[in-house]
Design a protein around this nucleic acid. Sequence first.
DNA 1: TTGAAAGCGTTACCAC
DNA 2: GTGGTAACGCTTTCAA
Lengths: 327, 327
Amino acid sequence: MRDVAEVVGVSPMTVSRAFKDDRSVSEETRRRIRRAADKLGYVYDSTATAFRTQKSGFVAVTLPSINNANFAETYRGLSVEMEGSGMQLLLGATNYRVEKEEELVRQLLARNPEALVLTGGHHTTAMRDLVSALRLPVIEMWDLPKAPLGHAVGFSNEDAIALVVEHLAGTGRRKLAFVGASEGADSRGAERRAGAVAAARRLGLPEVTFIDAGSAPVSMRHGAARIEAMGAAVREFDALVCVSDPVAFGVLSACRRMGLRVPDDIAITGFGHFEVASVSEPRITTVDVGARRIGEAVAGLLDTLFAEETAPDRVEIAPRLVVGGTS
Amino acid sequence: MRDVAEVVGVSPMTVSRAFKDDRSVSEETRRRIRRAADKLGYVYDSTATAFRTQKSGFVAVTLPSINNANFAETYRGLSVEMEGSGMQLLLGATNYRVEKEEELVRQLLARNPEALVLTGGHHTTAMRDLVSALRLPVIEMWDLPKAPLGHAVGFSNEDAIALVVEHLAGTGRRKLAFVGASEGADSRGAERRAGAVAAARRLGLPEVTFIDAGSAPVSMRHGAARIEAMGAAVREFDALVCVSDPVAFGVLSACRRMGLRVPDDIAITGFGHFEVASVSEPRITTVDVGARRIGEAVAGLLDTLFAEETAPDRVEIAPRLVVGGTS
DNA sequence: TTGAAAGCGTTACCAC
DNA sequence: GTGGTAACGCTTTCAA
């Protein structure tokens, strides 16, 4: 800037103004400055700007996994809606582990993001302390925590799975099993399991059996492998309530390989409205949680917050039961 | 840093050193500094570092789509392998469009990345000019372009699909159709189609028919819908060579719904070794292109380049045919 | 092993 | 409409 200023015969300050939308620079001066800058090969340094203004133009986002069509869809919704805002997303994956999340968030915060978007409402204590000391918008998504860190956009996993259990009870199923990951890492999965257990009790069904498909993240192959390992023992159930559609698809494939008729011998349900649920034969009964809309709603909330307007603390994206041919 | 230094009773300079791998700080001092920093809620400011050192610590990465298990897996491999390097990935999605890629890269370059990782070897002319004027490492992946911008890590899509056609020819199939996206956006898909056509010619098979499943990206539902729309006309083929596993899965579901026996009446093949290929019933014949390994190899290449050592211009990740029950 | 001083390129603030 | 000054938080360099 100094070099450009010298050539043009103005101060660096004027050059600075000329490169922004500052209207107080005369058109003539601005033109001369642009020309000189081009000739000198001067490139405006956004790193310095970010440093000086303490505005990074980043929104930090954590996802449990990038390799999950649902989270990817949320990210897409967020990313598309944010496009016009000039903000850039800074993405990190926690691998479903809160310790990793903490480490990741520390790393992301070092970049001075202007907002922090987290997936889920479970965090380490250190992380909670760290984040609540910050003065920047925090949004938790895919969950509606009882004690949110800031804003929350999502749905209740317990209520969502209850839709499935009610549907199964309504169609005469009684002996249910829940297929999901071992306790620990996947807190949203754990909430779904708890929700299924609670709903079954409420409806007077027998206790829901837990079928452990391994440690999170569980997907198609885990569901399939676990059911194949069970063999005929799976016949004792009326319905297999799976933690996600990919797991349900694996379970469905395994059941058919074992000669079970779905839904005549056994019902299978998924969660999340993944593409595979609506393409498999038969289609898998599932819950559409509006992954895309979650991302879009987060973007909307951020817009409002950046405009310094008051935004709702809690945005509920209502889940919707989608009945397929597996139940 | 000054605040932390005051609490601990050292100079800011020592705090700075403590936060890096500088061994000249005593372990005792370092521990005390870490503790004080945690208590004060101090967060190291990478923006300032980036400014001062003129190094952003960013690697810019573009992917056609984040919502594709294969690209997600490449990103994961890259991300995991880069973890120790202190570099942060800056991700952007091109939606399979070179114009969008150009816009995206301009945006990413404003962050002064220290390297640029692109998917594919097709770019706009302006983009080629822009990038070749830069003095930073450029890596193209998922392709081995004839005129690479810098380094390339991947495989030949034409050779990879030839593995499939050879396998089909070897098992007596003659009348092949290729199911993929309309020409235009997905250049890797177009290369696969061209490769299938060339391989069939080489093997003396009849001309390969093109079945257009719509504009990129095509997935399960597009494959299914297209085949269902064709109805009985699909019976004229011995084999359906699909541009990807998700498409193949959709095609498989549609064929079964229509009462075709796979592989007796018709063979179906996919591409990419997605999870769905190995869990569906029957398993889908596919090509494992080493998505994860591509990411890892890119990370390795970057390590070498950042160490100012000479790195190979071209790293081939050999694709591998995986025969399933659909052929 | 630690510290002091200078400066990276920009912009906020105030003055004219 | 333009300019001068100071400062953003860190690291480089040199000195102790």
